[in-house]
Amino acid sequence: MSYDLNFYKKTTDSISKSDIEGYLNRLPNVINESGTQWFYQNKETGAYCTFEYYELDEEDEDVEEEHFNGFEDTKFAFNINFIRPQFFGKECFPLVDNLVKELNLYILNPQGDAEPKKYEKGMLEKEWGESNLKFAKSNFEEWGLSYLELNKSNYSWEFSKNRNSLQNSLGDSYFVPGIYYVKKKDSNIVNTLAVWPEHIPYTLPKVDYILVQKKIKKLFRTKKEDGLIKYSELVSKLGQFFVDEKDYKVIHPENANKISKLFNELPLIGSFENFGEGIAVDKFVNINDK
């Protein structure tokens, strides 16, 4: 179940196949192994989509090429699946908007319009998003989907998208965690989770749980212990040592050195294994069947 777009150009424009290939090859996070398919996947956020160049087989009598006066089919297409978190659209449709703007292309939208046209920025994302929620809701139970509240989902995507740049700006002495998605046992509710190893300088995103990894030094050995703690509980215990930024908290080296004892005394509610299991980003949606 997917949403597809085809790209057209004016017959008077000199845009070539190599021009479009050049744009796609310059995109970050793109793999092009076949020469005709550009698979975009951001490993930080998990969002993905596909651009493809297709040529109709002369022997394929079932496929009828569409012709529009004044337009020429570039034979490039875009594809994004339905039944995904809404942030798939937030990340992928700007790639389409920029391609169309940069090369003056037109879009044939098989989901609606009967001819190639220009779309206002954000319109295709909006159309996909509305259909995505509708399909997710109607297939929620049948597909065994899980649910993550929209604001949490979009926040996690935004933080994950910017994680590397934040890590680079803070430097190697800090740990900027990725955000993971966890489904509780016997539940279809998804929670967000970050890992904090030891009491090192740390960036704390707004997540539901933190997996704390302790190293407690004993007389002749070091005891390792890990477990979950709620975000609210962690902040109540250690919040005074963090500096508030716009969308996250940071504990700087001078304070990280002060909290060794408090960190190792944090009350943990149990292990990750007993709590639930990790879930991939294409297995949850931002609407349920209620």
Rank of each mutant, 00 (worst) to 15 (best):
R84H: 00
E125G: 07
S131T: 08
E55K: 11
V30C: 08
F242D: 01
P201Q: 08
E254S: 05
E55P: 03
V235S: 02
F135H: 10
N164R: 04
Y54K: 02
S160V: 00
P110Y: 04
S153H: 02
K134G: 11
L266A: 04
E102C: 04
K206V: 12
A114V: 00
W143V: 15
L166R: 09
K214Y: 06
Q240C: 11
I229E: 01
W38L: 01
G171M: 04
S131H: 12
N139Q: 14
N42I: 02
L95D: 11
I216P: 14
V63W: 03
R84C: 07
A194I: 01
K137Q: 13
S173R: 02
D289R: 00
K43S: 05
F76R: 01
L105T: 06
I83C: 10
K17I: 09
V30S: 02
F7Q: 09
G276N: 11
Y48H: 10
F82R: 12
Y8G: 01
D73T: 03
F76H: 04
N162A: 07
F175I: 12
D247L: 07
H252E: 15
C49Q: 00
M1V: 08
N274D: 14
K121I: 11
I20D: 07
L268E: 09
E149W: 01
V96F: 12
R84P: 13
E65L: 10
D186Y: 07
W128N: 04
E277F: 15
K134V: 14
I15W: 13
T11Y: 13
E254H: 10
N69S: 12
E33L: 04
E245P: 13
E142K: 13
W143T: 07
F135W: 11
N286E: 11
P267H: 02
L234Y: 04
Y180W: 04
Y119E: 15
L150R: 12
K134T: 10
N162G: 02
E55F: 05
N274M: 09
K184Q: 13
D113A: 10
F51W: 04
E66F: 01
F284A: 05
E64W: 05
N81Q: 14
F263M: 13
S16L: 14
M123P: 10
S16N: 11
F82V: 13
G112C: 04
P116G: 11
F284Q: 02
